[in-house]
Design a protein around this nucleic acid. Sequence first.
DNA 1: AAATTTCGCTACGCTTGCGTAGCGAAACGG
DNA 2: CCGTTTCGCTACGCAAGCGTAGCGAAATTT
Lengths: 196, 196
Amino acid sequence: MRDPSADRIDPRAVRSRRRAVDAALELIRELGAGRTTMEAIAARSGAAKTTLYRQFGDLETLLFAAFESLTGPPAIPVAAGVVADVRSWLHQFAEVLTTDEFAPWVPAMIDVAERDEHGHALAVDFAARRRLPLRTRLSVALDAGELAADTDIDTLVSMLVGPLFYRRFISRQATSFAFVDQVVDSALGSLVTSSA
Amino acid sequence: MRDPSADRIDPRAVRSRRRAVDAALELIRELGAGRTTMEAIAARSGAAKTTLYRQFGDLETLLFAAFESLTGPPAIPVAAGVVADVRSWLHQFAEVLTTDEFAPWVPAMIDVAERDEHGHALAVDFAARRRLPLRTRLSVALDAGELAADTDIDTLVSMLVGPLFYRRFISRQATSFAFVDQVVDSALGSLVTSSA
DNA sequence: AAATTTCGCTACGCTTGCGTAGCGAAACGG
DNA sequence: CCGTTTCGCTACGCAAGCGTAGCGAAATTT
């Protein structure tokens, strides 16, 4: 009997997993999570269904693995004054929402989160990680006295990113440069301490 | 040959349509649009598939009919000062987001809008109709000089409802009374003319 | 290098969903 | 009322997807 504690890694399994996850991401983007099937993932990834079942157990697990493969850490805003930092971060974020980096999968995640218990947890976690840099930067500002002492950070985050999400996924209006600026000014305007 | 211009209405067809739409709504809520099938709608509505195909042509049309059956006109804010009116409307809206009136179908619509051309149009239209009362109220305020003359109404609307959508569908945090108040204050605070 | 485990494929049976053909029954028009 | 039209159902064939059994090939251990 071999050592059970040693995590063996068969290179074939690794390749299969990666290909399956990539194929799943493509299919979710094209068809949505609901219409993505094991059969299609197997076909597109080139792997056999048996392999996928052995690697992931079931479709849900595979889809979630695909979602989690998206969670690259977002850029961290540097320090140069809250307003300026937040402004540049939010502009960057607005830009990201127009690319294929993660925006195309957000609707699928929103959908899954509404109906599936695990999906709910996944989405909550994903969102929390995504906004962490912004949240951290605001926390630092609060501690440094750059923001009014009674500022609620979570509320502030929602007021900053909420309008962007709304425009991208709900009203589907364009987010102009001026729009982002106004959001920043409005959200932070009354909170920045005059001293800073 | 009968008069082709007379829109005959067979009561059986009317019943079938209504039942099908209701069943579709239930299924979309439970499974998402992607997993909702003709078979399931037929089974739950009690109608035969043939009937559904005759009435709607295809699944997409039926699903869209279901979505559109949701679009009840939202309440119209009355006049009593912009800030107060908007505040009460937004509190009411936050409440609606916690009920089964239309919130459970928003994720499905977001998902469909991202992938389907018709779905996109439907969602845009739906969102526009939903925010119309708020938009109108703000327009009135602008015309009345209650808001700064250079105010962009659409931006303002996004800053008001965006944070609520974000909390309900993305971060899935609770929207407290205080949260809504802060959103209103922040968005309108600097815009209301001191005279009003 | 030999023994052993894991991998990945083909092939299969089963279930679900699709979309239609054809037939009585119900609703409408004269 | 009586002909005509529409409705709704049962029944069907077909395609897609599911999940697994069994077997050679590849990788790992000793």
